[in-house]
């Protein structure tokens, strides 16, 4: 089971230490209270003799101890809070981020400064580097969080936020939007694919390429339909005339493992179901139902699947 304790970044590892201290302290306090509660409940139960116990009502020394103990504990954790925060979340200054995240209802857009790469929901990052991840939103407030990466970041329209991540090992890490953002808040999941620096450079180069022209009659018909219908007013496919920015960039749609921000596996069946009736698959999504003919859907599916 992946959890906040399966740290995948150095920042999360640092946080994990703080988590451990806190869990130990909290369990100790809870155990103390629970033990005293049970012990007193047994020891001081009414003996049925009708005798009123001694009417003690205060003890200044004990009360002072009750005040000092928790205060020291809290002071220690405040010190740790400040130290850990400074270590994992220093200000970003004017540093150019490795990736810019924009939250949308209900998908994630990722751009890579210094390149023309734009992708959605599946975000590729290199391991071993201290990455600055910058976030904002195009509509309502969302929240970027991968449990294995430690801290989360609200992405807010009109504001730029940031987090740091030094990913330790290649692999796939999952996360999700954590701020309630409307109907499809549940299906706004994040997939981060971490590569070795060499693999990452290869991915970045490939992702920067424009879409390859479709091959085969069906896919070519699909490409023509994509241009003919309203698709291009919301979606971008680099290398074609489609330059919309409302929906996800589809230039390399076929290379993604999942679609609709984690809702479904990316395969031709799911894609043609989605094109048939988006509102039945992801109710509330901003993709309208176009009532395409069955042939059109087949052609569009063939075209989009080829966009590797």
């Amino acid at each position: 089971m992946r959890s906040i304790f399966s740290s995948a970044t150095q920042e999360a590892e640092r946080l994990h230490r703080l988590d451990t201290y806190f869990i130990i302290a909290a369990l100790a306090v809870l155990l103390l209270v629970a033990a005293l509660t049970v012990y007193y409940a047994i020891k001081y139960r009414d003996k049925g003799d009708g005798v009123e116990p001694e009417q003690t009502s205060s003890n200044l020394k004990l009360e002072a101890a009750m005040l000092v103990g928790p205060t020291l504990l809290v002071a220690a954790f405040f010190f740790l809070t400040i130290r850990t925060t400074q270590a994992i979340l220093p200000p970003a200054g004017r540093l150019v981020p490795a990736v810019r995240i924009v939250g949308h209802q209900w998908w994630w857009e990722a751009t890579y400064p210094g390149t023309n790469v734009v992708t959605a929901n599946e975000i590729h990052l290199p391991v071993g580097q201290r990455l600055l991840i910058e976030g904002t939103s195009a509509d309502v407030i969302h929240d970027w969080w991968l449990p294995a990466f430690g801290e989360k970041m609200d992405v807010i329209p009109g504001r730029l936020n940031h987090v740091w991540a030094t990913i330790r090992a290649p692999g796939v890490y999952e996360g999700a939007c954590n701020e309630f953002c409307g109907q499809q808040h549940a299906w706004m999941r994040i997939r981060v694919v971490a590569h070795t620096p060499a693999d990452y450079a290869r991915w970045l180069a490939a992702a920067g390429q424009p879409a390859a022209p479709p091959t085969g009659a069906l896919a070519q018909a699909g490409g023509a339909l994509f241009a003919h219908y309203a698709c291009s007013s919301c979606h971008q496919i680099r290398g074609t005339a489609a330059h919309g920015h409302q929906g996800p960039d589809l230039t390399h749609f076929g290379s993604r493992r999942t679609m609709l921000a984690g809702l479904l596996e990316n395969n031709p069946d799911n894609l043609s179901r989605w094109l048939t009736d988006p509102q039945a698959i992801k109710p509330g999504a901003h993709m309208p139902r176009f009532i395409f003919g069955r042939d059109s859907i087949r052609a569009l599916t063939a075209y989009l699947t080829q966009l590797k």
């Binding site: 703080l18 806190f22 809870l30 209270v33 809070t81 850990t84 969080w145 954590n178 701020e179």
Partner: peptide
Amino acid sequence: FTIGGLSGIAFAIVPIDLQLTDT
């Protein structure tokens, strides 16, 4: 209430809050 109070302290610790808030 001790359980609720202790998990509340977790949210005062900024880095832990940044993990667990909105979960």
